[in-house]
């Protein structure tokens, strides 16, 4: 299978990418590592007229300790995030999640920013970042803005990004020394999560994020509220699926996803010491 025809534009820097987006507008699609986009294009579920390839925009591939905040360039690959000493120190949950994306080949190519911008609700990276309370730096002709992970995705594969905007950086407040948990349920190792749960403790508070329990990654609000009022892991986890609308597909029914959300939340909380 091959993608429908398109024009290829190489953009090896933010400026080049911004210029290309400015020229081609909403006909263009950004290609980062391509591990989500190219399969869709091969199946012709995505047929952009112009592909702007930013996979080698080196100015957007970095991990920096910005004094209490971990700054990660959007085009940093999963494998580089997974083995980064800074990420492992400040956000071990993210390092772990990056190490469980797809398979080694996908992690050698796919980028964390690409994953966030693709906004698949079953993806590891946005789930971990939601639990970590990350924010996303978005830049476009109108300037730079910072969007919280909770506000970024607006629906299945949809985000607040305007056609001429780029996600340039992911900012994660350091969670050094804090407990965390990540539970991912799949049929096979390579599969997208049937359901996944990320738990991040920070100070006295606990964040719980759910993958594949709706059209976007979600916070398990009822569980978080129960924990805040002093409930134990098992009791709090029993509320994990409240307010969610999981889909049914070939992998699992909605009912089973709800069940998994509760079980996995309990386990992730236990792993995080709750």
């Amino acid at each position: 299978m091959i993608p429908a025809p398109f024009d290829y534009v190489r953009a090896d820097s933010y400026d080049a990418a911004a210029a290309a987006l400015g020229e081609h507008g909403d006909e263009a699609k950004l290609l980062a590592g391509g591990q989500s986009l190219l399969p869709l294009m091969k199946l012709r579920l995505a047929t952009p007229a112009v592909v702007v390839d930013v996979s080698r925009a080196r100015d957007l591939a970095y991990v920096r300790d910005d004094g209490g905040v971990l700054a990660i360039g959007a085009l940093t690959r999963h494998c580089d995030v997974a083995r980064s000493a800074d990420v492992t120190a400040h956000a071990p949950l993210l390092a772990h999640a990056a190490g469980s994306v797809g398979d080694p080949q996908v992690r050698h190519r796919g980028t964390v920013g690409g994953s966030v911008a693709h906004a698949d609700p079953s993806a590891d990276i946005p789930t971990a970042l939601l639990a970590l309370g990350a924010s996303y730096v978005v830049r476009g002709p109108g300037g730079t803005r910072e969007v919280s992970a909770a506000d970024f995705s607006t629906g299945f594969l949809e985000t607040v990004l305007a056609p001429d905007e780029l996600l340039v950086e992911i900012r994660v407040p350091s969670a050094r020394g804090e407990a965390w948990g990540y539970e991912k349920f799949t049929r096979r190792a390579i599969d997208w999560a049937t359901v996944a749960v990320a738990v991040q403790k920070r100070g006295g508070e606990t964040s719980v994020a759910l993958a594949n329990m709706g059209s976007t990654v979600l916070r398990a609000a009822a569980t978080e509220a129960a924990l805040a009022s002093g409930a134990g892991a098992a009791d709090a986890a029993a509320h994990a699926d409240e307010g969610t609308e999981p889909a049914a597909d070939v992998t699992a029914s909605a009912e089973f996803r709800r069940h998994l959300a509760r079980v996995l939340t309990k386990r992730a909380l236990v792993a995080a010491g709750r």
Partner: peptide, 29 residues
């Protein structure tokens, strides 16, 4: 396969494994 699933097309790109069915030739110029 069509879906980046099977790995039969795995090659090394600058020394690291990638699935060559899910990389544009143009990208590796």
């Amino acid at each position: 396969c069509d879906t980046t699933s099977c790995g039969a097309c795995t090659v090394l790109l600058d020394g690291e494994s990638v699935k060559s069915c899910t990389v544009l030739a143009a990208s590796v110029d």
